[in-house]
Design a binder for these strands. Structure first.
Length: 194
DNA sequence: TAGAGGATTGAT
DNA sequence: TCAATCCTCTAC
């Protein structure tokens, strides 16, 4: 289990890098599922890609302003839940979007949730991994140190295995869309497709 | 209170 | 290329 101090640093981009290789787990209805984080994106109030750009607090994004170490979950396109980890101190809106996992625990339960027989790319995308792990908006604001959702150390990733590139799906952010704040594990087949 | 659009996905 | 689908935010 990661300490609060890991999330509450004033370094959201670095935290996004360091989350690669860790394991994200949930326990829903007594079932534990989880996977190694292989793709993340950093978001900060300082740039246009962020829901809390310019510290604009709304009912949806208010948990982004909490102290680091809680989950920020919201509905995207009316269909998909997206899971973020809030970072930094209270009042400073920054978060890391978890975009893809490599399944480690409970694959058979993920298949049931996804209604598929194949295990192929079952958690390769931000909307898919939340469904596979049973994450919905009831997770919004939950502490990552609880019984429902948590993060642990798993593998150590060499820096040369980390690739940085622009984030996906934020063309509306103008120049900020070019920031190289998306990170993924080189050659990992579970990374979401471009 | 109406209207536009979104940190996606999977099918065509 | 496009529809699914619904909540959020902005403007009136």
């Amino acid at each position: 289990m990661m300490p609060e101090s890991f999330y509450q640093r004033n370094q959201v981009v670095k935290i996004a890098c360091e989350l690669i290789g860790k394991i994200l787990l949930t326990r829903v209805d007594g079932i534990t599922t989880g996977g190694m984080i292989v793709e993340t994106e950093a978001y900060s109030f300082r740039e246009r890609g962020c829901h809390a750009y310019q510290n604009n607090m709304t009912p949806r994004n208010e948990v982004m302003f909490e102290a680091g170490g809680v989950a920020y979950v919201y509905l995207c396109y009316g269909i998909h839940h997206l899971f973020n980890i809030v970072t930094n101190q209270q009042g400073t809106a920054e978060a890391v979007l978890i975009r893809a996992l490599e399944p480690v625990i409970g694959m058979e339960h993920m298949q049931v949730r996804m209604k598929v027989l194949s295990t192929n790319r079952i958690t390769s995308g931000p909307g898919k991994l939340t469904k596979a792990l049973g994450i919905d908006r009831t997770f919004n604001g939950k502490y990552l140190a609880g019984d429902d959702v948590w993060v642990d150390d798993y593998e150590t990733i060499a820096s040369k295995q980390l690739i940085a590139c622009p984030r996906i799906g934020i063309d509306y952010a103008g120049e900020d869309a070019k920031l190289p704040w998306r990170f993924y594990l080189k050659d990992n087949t579970w990374v979401s497709k471009k």
